[in-house]
């Protein structure tokens, strides 16, 4: 099955298939023009701007202590947040698909909140909630844990914005899972745990990883929900997008651009990985 699918995907379509429908030329033309004007040319401008720097200058900016610390913080915490979302997002998806419990449909709808709630609103709400006098912050303070205005606060914000990505990529795969596979496993004497780890999990892993990568990509560039809760101390709790913002406000355009280019290249690589993962997921579950 896998072989056939690969063959189908690899078959090149060299020419446009003839169609009786009108409007191909004009709609494609408008699409490409608009895409170029709004997205491609502005992004190309960013790369052109870095070309005015010598490589030594560029390197000095992106490896300065403050920039390196910002990168470490942004990428490191985004990774941790994506791992937390991988585990809990998978758990939430499983509970929503497999179990019946009061409030299930409401919670299912609420999973999309981070997509719809403006980041600035999420930022001030999370800060208030996790501040030392907030509902959760005061409880955590008893245990000596400080969340707001520390890197831990950044992590909370990044988990918040990444959550729906994992849940919404895993949910459809779990829904489509063939019941017979599990029944066969049980009939052949597998325990429930064996069925889960050897039959279900392998089918869901590509979707889990896709959701993980999407959550990671979103977290790396996140700005609005983070800056309120972060504390924003240089080298300690200053994320890379904020450093770009600060350099811009100081009119240090070259610095802002150099840091932005590094982040942009990272996003491209993640996007590439996501495309690969999605294809893998489709192949494995046969949802083509």
């Amino acid at each position: 099955m896998k072989y056939r699918a690969t063959m189908g995907a690899a078959r090149p379509r060299l020419r446009r298939r003839p169609s009786v429908l009108p409007g191909f030329g004009i709609t494609l033309g408008v699409t490409l023009t608009w895409l170029a004007l709004i997205v491609l040319i502005p992004l190309a401008g960013l790369f052109l701007q870095t070309a005015t720097l010598s490589f030594a200058e560029f390197w000095a900016i992106v490896t300065s202590r403050r920039a390196l610390n910002a990168f470490k913080l942004s990428f490191g915490l985004s990774l941790v947040a994506a791992v937390i979302n991988l585990v809990f997002g998978g758990l939430v998806a499983w509970a929503l698909v497999r179990y019946q419990f009061p409030g299930r449909r409401l919670l299912d709808a609420i999973v999309d909140i981070p997509f719809a709630l403006p980041t600035a609103v999420a930022g001030i709400a999370l800060t208030t909630l996790f501040a030392e006098n907030g509902w959760l912050g005061s409880v955590l303070a008893l245990a000596g844990i400080k969340v707001a205005f520390t890197p831990l606060g950044i992590l909370v914000a990044l988990v918040f914005i990444g959550l729906p990505f994992v849940v919404r990529t895993v949910q459809p795969v779990l829904l489509d899972l063939d019941a017979e596979l599990e029944e066969v496993a049980a009939t052949l004497g597998a325990s429930r745990w064996q069925t889960f780890t050897r039959v279900i999990l392998p089918l869901v892993v590509p979707a889990l990883l896709t959701g993980f990568a999407l959550a990671f990509a979103r977290a790396v560039g996140e700005y609005g929900s983070v800056i309120f809760i972060a504390g924003n101390l240089p080298n300690v709790s200053e994320i890379a997008p904020l450093l770009i913002m600060i350099r811009l406000e100081e009119f240090k355009y070259a610095d802002a651009t150099a840091i932005a280019v590094v982040m942009l290249i990272a996003s491209f690589l993640i996007l590439l990985a996501i495309n690969r993962l999605q294809r893998w997921s489709e192949l494995r579950t046969g949802r083509l």
Binding site: Y223, P241, I244, F268
Partner: peptide, 17 residues
Amino acid sequence: LPFSVSPVIAGLVFVLL
């Protein structure tokens, strides 16, 4: 593409233009 570009960079490109 714009989904995976940081909002701050989205603003920056127009400042550069």
